[in-house]
């Protein structure tokens, strides 16, 4: 039962807190101000961070900001007061960090930004930023499709939330490939709000608008969840997802691997939830012999296809 899970988690958290206090002297302590739990990916990122910290014998204190910057600033201040060895921030917004980061700098506590960067004039305020390149993700997805179809394909696009930076960038990257391939065309594009329900609804209308789906060669979704919704819409229209209409998406959440294993999706580009791993490595190297890491550590955008889907699903299902 989920409820029992919850109790064990609380119990474990209590244990970890008490043991953390006992070992505080011998272990390195890192405070992590997490955005919140707005998506499955975010929950996975938190979980992976804990695992990566444990691997390296680091005591990780996680603070949930519930999508509010003021909570994050408060968390950072309390980490400074506790005298942690380093602070990780997954910033909810990109501005307004200068003064609190200055406080951390004055306390000589290095700060690492995870999965999103910030806008600041003084980039000595943070040690490094570990993020993915969302434009590149869109480009990789487009390149796979261009290669697969010989550069000839009518694509319908399911955009993320209008105005959000991953939606803008994943569209930009894909559009670069479309511009380079005259045979490739985006025939319809609409927002599916990054959700399964909207992805399904928008795909239903695309299929009807394009002659029952006959004109559509592939669907490109800005995240896996919309692709999973689209797969159901394609099936309900009596077509075969993955064959009649190819399914291309980004994120690499477990359920898309399940769909790929069933032959219903073709490819996904990974947005790794492991931002903390590279951050810990950079931090440990910095602490050991003062080695300055680059200002931007870009995570890998790996392409996954059905061949490895079953194995990847098994690997990931417990993280999400």
């Amino acid at each position: 039962m989920k409820a029992r899970h919850l109790l064990t988690t609380i119990g474990m958290a209590a244990l970890m807190l008490s043991s953390g206090a006992a070992y505080a002297q011998s272990k390195m302590t890192v405070g992590f101000s997490q955005v919140g739990s707005e998506s499955g990916w975010r929950a996975a990122e938190t979980k992976v961070s804990k695992i990566e910290a444990e691997k390296r014998g680091i005591d990780l204190k996680i603070s949930d900001a519930q999508q509010k910057q003021e909570n994050q600033i408060r968390a950072v201040r309390s980490f400074i007061a506790q005298g942690v060895d380093a602070i990780f921030i997954a910033p909810v917004v990109s501005t307004g960090w200068d003064s609190v980061l200055k406080e951390a700098k004055d306390a000589k506590i290095p700060v690492v930004l995870l999965d999103r960067s910030i806008e600041t004039k003084d980039d000595s305020l943070y040690l490094t930023a570990v993020t993915s390149d969302t434009v590149y993700e869109g480009k990789v997805a487009g390149e796979w499709l261009a290669k697969e179809t010989g550069g000839k394909c009518n694509v319908v696009e399911l955009q993320g939330t209008v105005g959000s930076s991953p939606a803008i960038n994943r569209k930009k990257g894909f559009d670069q490939v479309v511009a380079a391939n005259p045979g490739m065309k985006i025939i319809r594009t609409q927002s599916g709000d990054f959700t399964r329900t909207k992805g399904k609804e928008v795909m239903e209308s695309f299929i009807k608008a394009e002659g029952g789906g006959k004109n559509i060669c592939a669907v490109y979704a800005h995240n896996d969840d919309m692709a999973i919704g689209a797969i159901q819409a394609i099936k309900e229209a009596g077509l075969k997802p993955g064959k009649d209409i190819k399914v291309v998406s980004i994120d690499a959440v477990p359920d898309i691997f399940k769909a790929m294993a069933d032959g219903e999706a073709n490819v996904t580009v990974e947005l790794t939830p492991n931002m903390a791993g590279p951050a810990f490595d950079a931090l440990l190297a910095f602490k050991k012999d003062g080695k300055q890491p680059p200002k931007w550590i870009q995570t890998e955008s790996k392409v996954y296809t059905p061949e490895t889907a079953q194995a990847e699903y098994e690997k990931r299902k417990d993280l999400y």
Binding site: D193, T195, R196
Partner: peptide, 14 residues
């Protein structure tokens, strides 16, 4: 209905 429609419960968005 919306949960059955996508065969999954999406607490963040449902």
């Amino acid at each position: 209905i919306v949960t059955a429609d996508i065969r999954g419960a999406d607490a963040n968005n449902a």
